[in-house]
């Protein structure tokens, strides 16, 4: 069964459950079977005897149908957003033959509450919701984005707090972010010193950098605004030392932004 059919089924179940709950069962409860025509007496009696379980069951049916519809059928929003992130990725790294996870585009949503084990859940977090390609999306890789902008973490947090497009390193900069992964770093340096530089440039905590040893060496952050209010951020991260087509990605984002933002309104 495809999603469209499932959507019709779930909506019908929700409608039936809602109708029984709000209209049919209250009428059955208030009606005296003796006052009814012979034809209606039997079904009303049948329902009256079973109302004690039919009523909560119909309520449960409506709730479950609504929940399932949202979780299963509403995936089209998620899939559409994923496709659009893929467009941005292709624009940013055209004809690239490297593995998909070397250059990623991730959409983060700002959530006031999120269980991240690093700080209070109510601090305000940027949580990854969709990522380009087929690589895994770890929901625990979230970034602090509190009301106090100075405490915002990472490129995502900084992009959120400044509401500005951020590119690291800049197109004309000679600086590159240090290579942290010891397996691929041919010339080992003081790991702590390198992590410190990396953390400073990417607005992260040095301990976090030492623990995670991120591979990404260039970033582009784009703030996402829905109905005039900040919604989240898009972060492009790459193992390349520079994102060469930053302007191309931005131009592409402008082209797809209106349908993209419409999809976000449906994305949970």
């Amino acid at each position: 069964m495809n999603r469209k059919t499932l959507h019709v089924v779930f909506n019908s179940l929700f409608g039936i459950g809602g109708f029984c709950n709000a209209i049919l069962f209250p009428i059955v409860l208030e009606t005296q079977p003796d006052s009814l025509a012979q034809l209606l007496k039997a079904p009303v009696n049948f329902l009256r005897q079973r109302l004690w379980w039919l009523w909560p069951a119909s309520f449960l049916l409506a709730a479950l149908a609504k929940f399932a519809d949202k979780k299963i059928c509403d995936r089209w929003g998620h899939d559409a957003v994923k496709e659009m992130l893929e467009i941005l990725r292709e624009k940013g790294f055209p004809g690239n033959k490297e593995p998909v996870h070397f250059h990623r585009v991730t959409l983060f949503k700002h959530k006031r509450w999120w269980l991240c084990w690093r700080f209070w859940p109510w601090s305000g977090w940027l949580v990854p919701v969709v990522r380009s390609g087929h690589t895994t999306l770890n929901h625990q890789t979230c970034f602090l984005a509190p009301d106090e902008a100075d405490h915002a973490e990472g490129i995502a947090g900084r992009c959120w707090s400044t509401k500005a497009v951020i590119l690291i390193p800049t197109e004309d900069s000679n600086m590159t972010l240090p290579l942290l992964n010891p397996e691929v770093n041919a010339k080992p340096h003081d790991p702590h010193a390198m992590a410190e530089i990396y953390a400073k440039e990417t607005f992260m905590d040095t301990d976090w950098v030492l623990k995670k040893l991120p591979h990404s060496r260039s970033f582009l952050g784009i703030p996402v605004v829905v109905q005039g209010q900040p919604w989240g951020v898009i972060v492009v991260d790459s193992r390349a030392t520079k994102i060469q087509c930053a302007k191309g990605i931005l131009a592409s984002y402008e082209e797809i932004a209106r349908p993209f933002i419409k999809c976000l309104e449906r994305l949970s």
Binding site: A164, V165, S173, E201, L250, E254
Partner: peptide, 16 residues
């Protein structure tokens, strides 16, 4: 683009 020390700030697309 406005030049910062390490980052470039473009006009946010939603402002344009």
């Amino acid at each position: 683009p406005r030049q910062g020390l390490q980052l470039t700030l473009f006009v946010p697309p939603h402002e344009v």
